[in-house]
């Protein structure tokens, strides 16, 4: 038995009103679905089992190009896979360029946090994202 919780994060250049008419159509969206064990006692928090991440890049596609993967081990760097299709429109890469961007989950006394480190965006205007963007706990 398990239960899940969704969180969404948007990059700072995200336009909520409407997308641009030309690239970059919009910024980046990260959907995290965290899966927890359920316990018999509802007062006891279940253990975080895994987090399914979907990183959607709207730079060159108004509908977004997504990369989906799962993270489960704390402290370990996970590469953001290039999507199988339309991977030329997926601009997320390492901060040094070339390779894939990375994420990791870090366990702290106050919870488990998602750390991101990558570049994305137009070739002529790459944007960098660094730092902690989400915290995972059971409410």
């Amino acid at each position: 038995m398990s239960n899940t919780k969704e969180q969404v994060w948007y990059s700072g250049d995200w336009k909520t009103s409407r997308s641009n008419l030309f690239p970059p159509y919009n910024g980046l969206k990260i959907l995290a679905v965290s899966t927890y064990e359920t316990t018999e006692n509802p007062l006891i928090k279940g253990k975080l089992m895994s987090i399914d991440l979907t990183i959607t890049d709207f730079t060159y596609d108004v509908n977004g190009i997504s990369s989906t993967f799962t993270v489960s081990k704390t402290g370990m760097w996970y590469e953001i896979p290039f999507p199988m299709n339309d991977n030329k429109k997926f601009t997320v890469s390492s901060v040094n360029g070339g390779g894939p961007g990375v994420v990791r989950i870090v366990e702290e006394p106050s919870g488990i946090f998602l750390f991101i480190q990558f570049r994305y965006g137009l070739e002529s205007m790459k944007r960098e994202e660094i730092g902690y963007i989400m915290r995972f706990t059971l409410e």
């Binding site: 205007m125 994202e129 730092g131 915290r135």
Partner: peptide, 13 residues
């Protein structure tokens, strides 16, 4: 602003 391309996320830090 377009010359400043690094966003640092400070959640929980």
């Amino acid at each position: 602003i377009s010359q400043v391309n690094t966003e640092i996320n400070l959640l929980g830090i």
